[in-house]
């Protein structure tokens, strides 16, 4: 069911046949992806399927083992993390990576001289400006991380597990903030383990299984193929590591997952 990525003339980020290894093991194997300005591409998949490693490869946290990453048409595959950042890439890593012993305001200062825009995005943080990030709630910490990202004035924002351990109401608040960023023309690549909400929010979607894209298309299209999604998402494919595309055994436990 895999289709090649739509040719996207307005793609702010394109990933072409990207391979990334971790500890000498291939984890991401030949992924193609695109993110358009002002739109969200959702990256789905069960745990351990290579979603975080893919983002690490795109951002340069882990060097890629093959393929290309284009930011606004320019090849950034060989650039350092900092060069990529300077060219407009921001990366929100998994697990609320606040600097714990810095205050909220100091966390923002690391990214930019003036933290105003972050406080505009999350006015609820104003009263917490001088509190150490370590003593914030999980939701507030995630706000700090997103706020830092917006201060970087990126063209594309990679977000790994926005909803990790957060209550649904807080997740909605985060998604609202991301929507604000989209309105400014930022392209977002959002990794999620919760398929339903992410597909409702995103414009495009790709499902990763064993490091390869097994399902890709417009978010509503992916949503309208529950069997494919379920099979890919549960990772119950019996395929060989080299060619996992699409092959499924289709008999994953049916009492629990998506039936949307």
């Amino acid at each position: 069911m895999t289709r090649p990525p739509r040719p996207a003339p307005d793609a702010v980020l394109s990933v072409e046949a990207l391979h990334v290894d971790r500890l000498g093991q291939p984890v991401v194997r030949g992924v193609n992806l695109a993110v358009n300005a002002g739109e969200v591409t959702v990256l789905l998949g069960a745990n351990g399927m290579g979603k975080s490693t893919l983002l690490d490869g795109i951002s340069g946290v882990v060097p890629s083992a093959g393929g290309r990453v284009l930011l606004g048409g320019a090849d950034i595959t060989r650039l350092s993390r900092r060069r990529r950042v300077a060219l407009g890439m921001a990366y929100v890593q998994q697990g609320r990576t606040v600097f714990p012993n810095l205050t909220v305001e100091e966390n923002f200062l690391v990214a930019a001289q003036r933290p105003q825009r972050a406080f505009d995005l999350f006015p609820e943080l104003r009263s917490r400006a001088t509190v150490k990030a370590a003593s914030l709630s999980g939701g507030e910490q995630q706000m700090v991380v997103l706020g830092r990202a917006v201060l970087q004035q990126p063209r594309v924002l990679l977000i790994d597990e926005l909803s990790l351990g957060l209550a649904p109401a807080i997740v909605n608040r985060m998604l609202a903030a991301v929507a604000d960023m989209l309105a400014e023309g930022i392209g977002v690549l959002l990794v999620e383990q919760f398929a339903d909400r992410a597909l409702a929010f995103g414009h495009h979607a790709a499902v990763l299984a064993r490091g390869a894209v097994v399902l890709q298309g417009r978010a509503d299209e992916v949503r309208s193929q529950p069997e494919q999604l379920q099979a890919a998402y549960l990772g119950e494919t019996e395929s060989t590591p080299d060619g996992p595309n699409g092959a499924t055994n289709g008999q994953a436990s049916s009492e629990n997952k998506e039936d949307a």
Binding site: P168, V171, F194, A195, R197, A198, A200, N256
Partner: peptide
């Protein structure tokens, strides 16, 4: 447990 609506909401992130 897996058909419990609370669990579906929590675990699968359904906005319920």
């Amino acid at each position: 447990v897996l058909s419990d609506p609370d669990v579906v909401a929590a675990y699968l992130g359904r906005a319920s």
